[in-house]
Amino acid sequence: MLEIRPAEIADHNEIVQLWHQGWHNAHADLVPSEVLAFRTKEHFKLWLKEARDAFFVAIDDIGVIGFISVKEAEVVKLYVSNRARGTGATHVLLSFAEKLLHKAGISKAVLLCTAGNIRAERFYQREGWELSHSFEEALWIPEGVSEKFIVSTHRFEKNLGQIP
Rank of each mutant, 00 (worst) to 15 (best):
S152P: 01
K103V: 03
G22L: 12
E72C: 06
I106Y: 13
V75W: 13
S134R: 13
M1P: 14
E121G: 01
R119F: 03
S95F: 01
A54D: 14
V64Q: 05
L2I: 15
E50T: 08
S95Q: 14
L18K: 01
S107Q: 15
S132C: 06
G22D: 03
K103C: 05
V64N: 09
A104G: 08
V145K: 10
A51G: 06
W23I: 13
L101N: 04
V80G: 09
G63D: 06
L78H: 06
D29R: 15
K49S: 11
H20R: 00
T153M: 15
E74D: 13
H91I: 13
N159S: 14
Q21P: 00
E130R: 08
L30Y: 11
D11P: 08
W23G: 08
K99A: 12
S134M: 05
S33Y: 02
A97I: 02
P142Q: 09
P164E: 13
K103L: 10
I141C: 12
P6A: 05
V57D: 05
F149L: 12
S107A: 09
G86K: 10
T40Y: 03
A89T: 15
F44H: 01
A51D: 15
E14A: 14
A26S: 15
T90Q: 13
G116R: 12
A28Y: 10
G105Q: 03
N117R: 04
E130Y: 01
K108F: 07
R52G: 14
L93Q: 08
A138W: 04
K103N: 13
A54S: 15
G105E: 05
V75Q: 05
Y124T: 03
R52F: 05
S69G: 06
T153E: 10
N25A: 09
F156R: 08
N82G: 10
L30T: 04
K77T: 07
W23L: 11
D53G: 07
K148W: 01
I65Q: 13
G22W: 05
G116D: 06
W47S: 01
H12T: 04
A138G: 14
F156I: 11
H27V: 11
I9K: 14
S107I: 09
F96R: 01
K41Y: 00
F56L: 06
E143G: 10
Q162D: 15
R52H: 14
E143R: 12
F55I: 11
N159H: 09
F38A: 00
E157R: 07
L160N: 02
R155W: 01
R126W: 08
K108D: 09
V145S: 00
L93D: 05
V57H: 01
D11E: 08
I68M: 06
I65A: 06
E137A: 15
A51Y: 02
V151K: 11
